[in-house]
Write a protein that binds this DNA or RNA. Structure first.
Length: 184
DNA sequence: TGCACGATGAAC
DNA sequence: TTCATCGTGCAC
């Protein structure tokens, strides 16, 4: 039986939260259907000083949720067509988040889940869920007791080449050897 | 009010 | 490597 993560889980160091999200279950209940996927790949975005993060532009209408309290979903549209889902970390005012990049399908998940856009499509997640509380029934992360991954790989984040030295930081984490990772 | 540019994915 | 496609942030 899976146990929903409490807000305290998210109210911690972003890299720690990112690593501990690996192996957890993302749950979305929507129109009577509960979709579940195991998180196998994530990226950490550390705050306004992190030039790869949206919040590096400061508090704007889009980044409002990132600056808000922990345990909420930050969902945005990229390239005019794909959605990306983040989990907001750390205390209110400390803008940081973890991008969910890939899932292993567990229940009611159709289509591919390798990559942040495909993950959202398969889980039926879009901007309507931006700002949604993750300490909720409809959308949350759960722990089903699966042991922590034995090997966690660290790599540079994807698609942030514009971020100078921040592009080189090893802030992408994934379960070593997992076949559902987007770019092993 | 206009415009350059994406935390992507798919095709070529 | 190219392109689809549109919201955002910033210049003017």
């Amino acid at each position: 039986m899976a146990r929903r993560l409490a807000r305290e889980f998210y109210d911690r160091d972003t890299v720690l939260v990112a690593r501990e999200l690996l192996g957890k279950l993302l749950v979305h209940r929507d129109a009577g259907v509960t979709r579940v996927g195991r998180i196998v790949e994530v990226e950490a975005y550390l705050g306004p000083h992190d030039l790869a993060a949206h919040c590096a532009r400061g508090l704007t209408p889009r980044t409002r949720v990132m600056f808000g309290p922990p345990g909420h979903a930050y969902v945005y549209l990229v390239y005019g067509m794909h959605h990306c889902m983040n989990v907001v970390t750390r205390a209110e005012g400390e803008a940081s988040a973890v991008l969910l990049r890939a899932l292993e399908p567990v229940r009611n998940v159709e289509g591919r889940t390798r990559g942040p856009g495909l993950l959202c499509r398969a889980m039926n997640i879009d901007r309507r869920l931006n700002g949604h509380d993750l300490v909720s029934t409809a959308l949350h992360v759960a722990d089903d007791g699966t042991p922590a991954p034995r090997v966690i790989a660290r790599r540079p984040r994807i698609g942030v080449g514009y971020a100078g030295r921040w592009a080189k930081r090893l802030l992408r984490f994934y379960i070593g050897g997992n076949p559902f990772v987007s770019r092993p």
